[in-house]
Design a protein around this nucleic acid. Structure first.
Lengths: 232, 232
DNA sequence: CGCGATTTGTGCACTCGTTCACAAGCGCAT
DNA sequence: ATGCGCTTGTGAACGAGTGCACAAATCGCG
């Protein structure tokens, strides 16, 4: 996974109401949430750490430790109450309110993201689409009209948008990030293959699709070298 | 970043020719590669660890240690030879040969991936598209015709495809993974929000776009709680 | 009511990754 | 040729994350 984090350099304060949760745990909570939803659909109303861990693809000790961070209480001898745990994780992740997201760049990837149902079904609402290309402005995708990027500040402000998604070419990404930040966005998901510089307090996560393939390529390469060596 | 790894449980053998490289380092190499290309385009022929680290968004000590793992030699007092280092990283990542990739699922996301230029420009060649939906078969995307998934095994075999990308709905993903593995694919990039079970020796990386947003949501939530507390 | 089966929560040891700080090496100017 | 400034490579300290193993807690049943 490729990612880039900024802001809050290491020290989660840890107020009583807001226990400090390790970043590694936070990164796994969404996966647990997905697994829980899947178990709930299958009719389970409780789940043991063992079964839940299997559904989430981790080992059970790690899962228990992770859940312990959010003051969770399963019942010993029984397991976790699925519905209750879903609620707890959603609360911690801040998914109790639908979050509005601004998507910038409706090229190949942006277009797909705009239509991706996974966002809407998991706590997010794509509130507005933007592009710098005037010829794309006005286009309608999924009942949302594409606006020119100059309107971004105004829309972000009126819609109370805190999260921005950048799906532009790399050369445009930093400029878009600046506009987003100046408009009040404090979290950015960046699909452009470049490093963004943002002021402290703004979180950036980076997803680079080619990077994932290159990591796989490494393992392919290694496997090939090893089996080759074995054949000798 | 959300990811899922399988196979080679921890122990990279580390043959003399193939030094054992920590997974964390491997995950950063593609980013260094991108930064190097960008520096090369800008006309630099050498780069210090400091400047390269800045371009890649890491600190210089980490970068130096990472590069030291691949027996790299920069020159003290000068820095790294950009072209040479590009070659070295490409070699380690196995990017010296163009790798063929099979893409399964040409829905919203798959469609975008098929057209994503970032793959082709960075060492990969999408060799074939597949879908289970007969009404999509025959459709042409980017000069590639969509084939029915039943043809997958044959095509993977004749084209020597080792990497598969799954961009199907979650419920279809495991089935597709099984077909891929049985056809000889040994690395899978999974965009479906579910855990795949694959035999040992097969590598799986998972990218879940909604998970990234949910992680950002957590930080938003935390920031809101903190500034709220400060205002009190 | 008590006992055994089961499962959580967690202290501890350990591995892995990061960061610091500095010695060794290189080039250039004098 | 020598010394000086710069940069790499790395040993060592540190910190975060993982996994084990077990005590504490809960339920069901006799």
């Amino acid at each position: 996974m490729s990612q880039q984090r900024t802001g809050n350099p290491g020290n989660t304060p840890g107020t009583p109401d807001f226990p400090d949760i390790p970043e590694a745990t936070v990164a796994r909570l969404p996966e647990y949430l997905r697994a829980l939803h899947s178990l709930a659909e299958a009719g389970h109303d409780t789940a043991s750490s063992e079964s839940l861990a299997a559904a989430a693809g981790v080992n059970s000790a790690k899962l228990r430790k992770d859940l312990s961070h959010l003051g969770s209480n399963g019942t010993r001898g029984v397991g976790y109450n699925v519905e209750r745990l879903i609620g707890q994780i959603e609360h911690v992740l801040g998914l109790t309110t639908l979050r509005a997201v601004a998507l910038v760049g409706v090229g190949n990837l942006g277009h797909a993201l705009a239509g991706y149902s996974g966002f809407t079904t998991r706590g997010f609402h794509i509130a507005a689409l933007f592009d710098a290309d005037a010829s794309r402005v006005g286009e309608k995708i999924n009942n949302l009209v594409v606006r020119h990027i100059d309107e971004l500040a105004a829309v972000v402000d009126t819609c109370q948008i805190a999260i921005g998604v950048i799906a532009t070419p790399a050369h445009a990404a930093q400029g878009v990030a600046d506009v987003l930040v100046n408009s009040g966005v404090t979290s950015i998901l960046n699909f452009a293959p470049c490093v963004l510089s943002v002021p402290e307090g703004v979180d950036v996560r980076k997803v680079d699709l080619a990077v994932e393939l290159q990591i796989l390529s490494f393992h392919e390469h290694r496997k090939a070298a090893l089996t080759g060596a074995v054949t000798l």
